[in-house]
Amino acid sequence: MRLYQLPTGTYRTRAALAVTGGSFRDVRAFAATAVLVSHPHGDLLIDAGFGAHVGEHVRMLARVERAPLELGRTVAQQLDDAGYDRSRLAGVLVTHVHWDHVSGLDSLRVPVWINREELRYARSDPHGAVFRAVSAGLEIREYDLGGPAHLGFPASFDVHGDGSVVVALAAGHTHGSVVVFVTLPDGDRYAFIGDLTWQIDGITRGAERPWPLRRMADVDADTVRLGLQRSIALSRLMRIVPSHDVGAYGSLPRLTGPVAPADA
């Protein structure tokens, strides 16, 4: 097994709008980064980053949700640049369906892995508009979060049945948002926590989103708070990666060449 980061760009938000106690003078680059999980039983992407038509996707947002973007290369372009064999890619496992996690599906003709609650949210909530556009015509691979509680989270799905990639229900940010736990053969462990917090401050000092942003961004702020507390407790055991913290991806290499066959 191997992990790779595929950064597709950033957008900028003031820290005061991202974490309680943040400064208006502190302008944060929010990552739009996908992670490739190479596994002997099939590779998966965690989220999809910015897509080829991200400008159109941003125009689908309410004006208050738009922010200046810095664009990189899409996941699809990076895979092709590296000579990656796309037949190995089993699909994109989305932590949740907000635009900055799914825009890149517009260039990836692969299945979308999603649970029932998140799919219901995606089909009905205004914040699912971009997902509805980019997933049109794609295979939806609905997985069941019927497995046991996992590391404090209430339900789970073991992707390969070997404990190496386990999806756990977080909820709160969206109805079916998830944490993806990855355990590598060398013992390194990662928790890709989606938007339980936008920045690593949420882990290092327990800083929640500011109250107005909690009301706007989360469907259940109390559940987000509980998931954040669980993630803080786990930070002593594994690397916690909030989706939008650029520095949190620092331990992951970039994809620069063909991926050798993964060993179990």
Rank of each mutant, 00 (worst) to 15 (best):
F24R: 13
T20F: 04
G51D: 04
R73G: 02
G72L: 09
V19N: 09
R59C: 03
V37I: 15
E70Y: 07
A48W: 01
R63W: 05
V64C: 00
Y11W: 14
L44F: 05
Q78I: 12
R86E: 09
V27M: 12
T13S: 12
V58I: 15
T20D: 13
H39V: 13
V64F: 01
Q78M: 11
T33A: 03
D81A: 15
A62Q: 13
F24K: 05
D26W: 14
G49E: 00
H53G: 09
I46T: 06
A29E: 15
D47G: 08
Y84M: 08
V35K: 00
T33R: 01
S23N: 10
S23F: 06
M60I: 12
P68A: 05
R28H: 10
L45F: 01
I46M: 04
D80A: 15
L71S: 00
A18H: 02
G49T: 03
V75I: 03
Y11F: 14
A18R: 03
T13W: 12
A67W: 03
L36F: 01
V27A: 15
A67C: 07
V19Y: 15
R12G: 00
F50Y: 15
A16F: 00
L69A: 09
V75L: 02
A15G: 01
V58H: 06
A16Q: 02
A34Q: 09
L69P: 06
P68V: 09
R28Q: 15
G22R: 11
E70T: 15
R14Y: 02
